[in-house]
Design a protein around this nucleic acid. Structure first.
Lengths: 201, 201
DNA sequence: TCATTAACCAAACAAGTATTTGTTTTTCTA
DNA sequence: TAGAAAAACAAATACTTGTTTGGTTAATGA
């Protein structure tokens, strides 16, 4: 569940107003968390991004940590949906993984603030909701675990290490990637290729 | 140069007293920056770690950022020395890389606070000294660039991407690594192996 | 021995922090 | 169109932050 739970009419889950600024708020928070970092972003920053006073944010979210949690939730939902849709048509395990990794890379590099937060803001930055954040991350990674489990690999290959290696490499692109040169898709394909086939001659 | 530059006698670079607590200070800062993060660590935290008042820290370092810079400098010096010593005896390029990666991994995983800071605290956390921090990082990575340049690889391999992939994977171990299971050395060897030789069957 | 000064303490400072409270405006609905 | 709830403001709260200032102690070298 996301957002706040007000007393709602029985049938509809939520009775919100048309002029609702929860989403703009989340967008602003995601943008700032992604670019400046969680701790470095103040409630003033977030509020002023959409012309709202810092105190007013607390009508929608009961704390800064809850705001981060909401961003995380929306991030996971989005990236999960996109990923599952992308691999739906594929059959070959290696091809499936490649498509998944390409999608993942594109999502975290194409200025998607939400995904950027999910990858870049580690759960330990918000101790009180650390477990929830970790659970959300795990929920996403479960998909990749499955994909790698189905991979035909040489004997003795540690699939868990393989996943951590691939994900570590991909997620760190966020640190050095700059638009205009190599594309996210190319990066992803290359990384998968360097693992699948030998690099040495 | 590290530390402060006071008026020193002509011959010696520094005329310090015996009871000098600069090093304990750096150790405390490194420890806290590594575990809690830069922004999350206060000058009070650092001071009280060695029984010193926060204001007193400013006798040795003129700001929190300068303190981080000093930690960075010591980190680079240490990890560089260790790495160069480790690869000195090796001849084969792949073997050389493997030894280098093993050393690097051991350094950042074996509770070495300094290296932990250098890898985990990104330069943009301290904007005023961002350039200096980046330069220090680059100075270290230059060694790895050279090692990878000498690697005999298949045609079409992008050596820069290869380095970013390997380093990204290795540095991200910091996030999930836990003592007691697989060793840093084993992780490093495995990662290099997964790149060198094919994973697919 | 004694002036020097490195090294620290004690105490405050000014600015910024997340958050709370009471009040007002806006918007929907009955 | 009145009334109620939603959504925001205005202003303060309680606290933490990095940093500064001026005084104190003790090691050092001339």
């Amino acid at each position: 569940m996301s957002g706040k739970s007000t007393s709602s009419s029985k049938t509809t889950t939520k009775a919100r107003r048309s002029h609702n600024r929860v989403q703009p708020l989340l967008d602003a928070a995601a943008k700032l968390f992604a670019t400046k970092g969680y701790k470095e972003t103040t409630m003033r920053d977030i509020g002023s991004e959409i012309g709202m006073l810092p105190g007013s944010v607390y009508y929608h979210f009961k704390s800064k940590q809850e705001l981060l949690l909401a961003v995380y939730e929306q991030a996971v939902t989005g990236i999960k949906t996109r990923l599952l849709a992308a691999i739906a048509d594929e059959q070959d395990p290696w091809r499936k993984l490649e498509v998944a990794v390409v999608t993942h890379t594109e999502t975290i590099l194409d200025q998607n603030d939400y995904a950027h937060v999910m990858i870049g803001v580690l759960p330990d930055k918000a101790p009180e909701i650390q477990q929830e954040l970790t659970a959300l991350r795990d929920g996403y990674e479960a998909i990749l675990i499955e994909l790698i489990d189905e991979l035909p690999v040489r004997k003795g290959i540690d699939r868990k290490l393989l996943r951590l290696m691939l994900l570590g490499a991909i997620n760190s692109t966020q640190i050095w990637y700059q638009e205009g040169t190599i594309s996210p898709e190319e990066i992803a394909r290359t990384f998968v290729g360097y693992i699948k086939d030998p690099v040495a001659k």
